[in-house]
Structure formats: structure tokens, C-alpha cells
């Protein structure tokens, strides 16, 4: 049996232990996602009661949607970027006693069943950090240009962070409380994904990559990173590494 959302296509098996689901706080940074965010949050809440959605200074009315649909709506009065929003949500969830933290993108490109599997892996104690890996399964949905860009990012991180991962810019992550407490994201903008990889490498905690499927809709493609964005991320990441 599965809970499905017709608009976003999000679906998930509902056999996840309710106690594990309740202990997992799903963090969703939101920036100008008014058209999809209610559906995304609504679908997640069919399994996970604790959804912390952080409106990151949206200008399209996303806050109204977040306030109505999230169990824990938070708001950045000024846009500070996805990294800052993730850290705000994490700090909040840890204060509320979260046992696990999950990161989930607001544009509906992640699948709830993937999140559930990742949560199960972390909850079972197999690892402290579960990272989504879109290249472990069917990659036909990944647009060729995006594939090249992401492969380049993987190579870059293999050199810069010394960690051997296969999908370093996947926004679907699950962290144990211990792992979340050890990580402090300081990169405001999109360079946070690279910073998280560094933090994962430095944490010394067991990591697992879990095969996931990313749904590339017209909407998520329009919101995704471009080549120029990739170079900007690399620049900010290197500056942060040099200047601390």
C-alpha cells in the first residue's frame, strides 16, 4: 500500500515504523516554490509528522503555503540561501529532540520511498549518514548535460575532499543526530552541498550511498543548477577553503 500525491507524483510505502518516522525530522528549504510546496510537504507528512519547512525569504507567496502545510514552519526574513536554511532547520529540529535529520528538496524531485529507505538504513544503525546516489540505478532520467556537470563535481570532490562518493550534489540526505550535531553548515549559498561533503569526510562517521531516483520535471529542471552556477559554487567553495 502506498500513499501517493497526484500532483507531484510523490509516493511512499507507509510501512515505515511510525516511531522511526516520528523521530526523523524532514528539513525542507523553500525559496519561491509556491506552486509545488504544499503538495511536497503534504506528501511527506503522510509518513513523517515532523516537517520543518524554512521559507528562505521567498517573494512569491511560498510562506503562506509553508505556514499552512508544514508542521514546523520557519521563516528567514531575508534570503540567505539553501545552506543557511538547512542549518536553521537542523538547529531547530535538534532543539526539539530530533533523533534523525533528513534533507529534502522543495521542488518535488525526490521520491518519498527513497527517503523512507534511507531513514531505515540510518535508524538501523548501519551508518550515521545516508546520501542519495542517483547514479547507482537507472541514470537515463538524468539529462546528459547534468550528468557531465555532476561527474565533474564528483571528480573535483575526490581531489578536494579526498572522499570517494558518486553523487556529491544530491539534496536527499539522512543524518543521525550524532552526525547532525557534528555538522555546521556555514556556506550560505549553493556551495553548502560541497561543504556538506567536506563535513561528511571530516566527521569520520560511517557513510552509505543509497540508490535514489531523481524526477526531472520541467519545473525542477528550470530550478536546477547550470554550468555557470557550477563554476560559481566551485569558486565560493575554494574561497571558503582558503579563507576559512
Amino acid at each position: 500500500m502506498s500513499a501517493a500525491n497526484h500532483q507531484t507524483g510523490l509516493s511512499a510505502p507507509t510501512d515505515l515504523d511510525p516511531e522511526i518516522a516520528a523521530g526523523t525530522w524532514v528539513i525542507i528549504p523553500v525559496y519561491n516554490e509556491a506552486t509545488v510546496i504544499s503538495d511536497v510537504i503534504g506528501s511527506i507528512r503522510t509518513v513523517f509528522p515532523n516537517v520543518v519547512a524554512i521559507d528562505d525569504g521567498s517573494t512569491d507567496g511560498s510562506w503562506d503555503q509553508v505556514r499552512r502545510s508544514a508542521s514546523h514552519p520557519l521563516r528567514h526574513l531575508v534570503n540567505r540561501g539553501q545552506g543557511a536554511a538547512l542549518q536553521t532547520g537542523t538547529d531547530y529540529a535538534l532543539r526539539q529532540g530530533a533523533a534523525r535529520i533528513a534533507h529534502f528538496d522543495a521542488d518535488g524531485q525526490h521520491r518519498l520511498e527513497d527517503l523512507c529507505r534511507m531513514v531505515e538504513v540510518v535508524a538501523s544503525g548501519e551508518c550515521d549518514i545516508a546520501l542519495g546516489n542517483r547514479f547507482a540505478g537507472d541514470v537515463s532520467q538524468v539529462p546528459p548535460a547534468r550528468r557531465v556537470l555532476l561527474r565533474a563535481a564528483v571528480l573535483f570532490h575526490r581531489i578536494a575532499s579526498g572522499i570517494e562518493l558518486h553523487d556529491v550534489h544530491n539534496g536527499l540526505r539522512v543524518l543521525s543526530r550524532r552526525a547532525a550535531e557534528r555538522m555546521e553548515i556555514t556556506a550560505d549559498r549553493m556551495a553548502h552541498a560541497s561543504e556538506i561533503i567536506d563535513l561528511v569526510a571530516r566527521s569520520g562517521l560511517p557513510v552509505q550511498e543509497i540508490p535514489v531516483t531523481i524526477r526531472y520535471s520541467e519545473y525542477s529542471r528550470a530550478k536546477g543548477q547550470r554550468w555557470t552556477g557550477g563554476f560559481r559554487i566551485m569558486f565560493h567553495y575554494l574561497i571558503a577553503r582558503i579563507l576559512g
Binding site: N5, V40, G42, R45, P49
Partner: peptide
């Protein structure tokens, strides 16, 4: 309470 699965709205 979780929102309605079909509409995604609470």
C-alpha cells in the same frame, strides 16, 4: 494531523 494525501493540504 497529516494533511489529506490527495490534495496535500492540511
Amino acid at each position: 494531523p497529516a494533511p489529506d494525501a490527495a490534495t496535500g493540504r492540511s
